[in-house]
């Protein structure tokens, strides 16, 4: 009962603050409102768990998660290096390079392009993460099998976007290149690849999340005794939910950082595109 009252009071305070912020229309509302909302949620969680006597094997309070996070930094770092740096990043780079190469090859034929676009879009919608047990069987339980799953998962969205992007030039632009006497390769590198960049980055950004999902979920099917997916599944079994939450915090931070990094590179490379202009 106490917990319920406390939750309602905290929620009311947070929401009133945001109401006032929204009504004032102040510039700071853009970042202050989500921050207040997030903090309100955390407080409700903390107070609700503590006053409501929720067992820590069901939902540990955020403070306990923070303590565990700080205390298990070495474990978290080892898992991060295994899953993200080795598995996800390797697979992401391999998948992206392969997709890009295939896209450039396919792009030379209008016939193939018309076949690859729908098939690729179709494959991108399939539950490819289910191939994890097969790759674990082929490549062993260490990170190469995770990189392979990630590579296949990110391949199709990047392929479809790159193929679509390489077609995204106007007849006028292509004619201009022809009047310059530019052959296939110069017009590919000077016109069509740059023109495809907004599309490519859309694919690369979608693929960041897929890469992390692939690397973590593939570890549920078999892994060495290190890695975020391994830690999550074993800690869940040991009911050490604070460690699981700490891993999820790491996954969230890594996901946002990865996506943010791609968005930043995109901004640098496609500054000319209408979507990037201020």
């Amino acid at each position: 009962m106490m917990a319920l009252v406390a939750i309602i009071v905290i929620w009311g305070i947070g929401w009133t603050m945001n109401l006032a912020l929204a009504r004032s229309g102040h510039r700071s509302a853009g970042w202050a409102a989500p921050l207040i909302f997030g903090l309100t949620l955390l407080l409700v969680w903390e107070v609700g768990v503590r006053l409501g006597d929720v067992s820590p094997i069901i939902l540990p309070p955020p403070s306990a998660i923070a303590v565990t996070f700080m205390a298990s930094l070495p474990i978290l770092w080892a898992d991060f290096a295994q899953t993200i740096l080795k598995g996800a990043l390797t697979g992401y780079v391999l998948g992206a390079v392969a997709a890009f190469a295939v896209a450039v090859m396919v792009d030379r034929s209008e016939f193939l392009t018309r076949g690859v676009l729908p098939v690729g879009a179709f494959m991108a919608a399939l539950p490819i993460v289910g191939t994890a047990p097969i790759f674990v069987k082929w490549l062993g339980s260490d990170w190469p099998s995770k990189a392979a799953v990630v590579g296949v998962m990110v391949f199709f969205p990047i392929l479809v976007n790159t193929v679509a992007g390489l077609r995204d030039t106007s007849a006028m632009q292509r004619d201009l290149m022809r009047t310059y006497g530019a052959g296939y390769w110069p017009s590919l590198f000077k016109l069509r690849v740059p023109a495809a960049m907004p599309f490519v980055f859309n694919g690369l950004k979608i693929a960041t999340t897929l890469a992390l999902i692939g690397a973590i979920v593939a570890e549920f099917f078999g892994s060495p005794t290190v890695g975020m997916g391994f830690r999550i599944s074993t800690s869940v079994g040991q009911l050490a939910l604070d460690l699981v939450w700490a891993e999820i915090v790491v996954a969230a931070l890594a996901g946002s950082a990865f996506y943010g990094a791609m968005a930043m590179i995109e901004k640098r490379l496609t500054f000319w595109h209408p979507s990037q202009r201020k």
């Binding site: 879009a121 991108a124 969205p157 479809v160 976007n161 679509a164 992007g165 995204d168 907004p198 599309f199 980055f201 859309n202 694919g203 979608i206 968005a263 995109e266 595109h273 979507s275 990037q276």
Partner: peptide, 10 residues
């Protein structure tokens, strides 16, 4: 960002 592309945003 309102970008060009295929997938989630288009």
């Amino acid at each position: 960002v309102l970008g060009a592309g295929v997938g989630r945003s288009a």
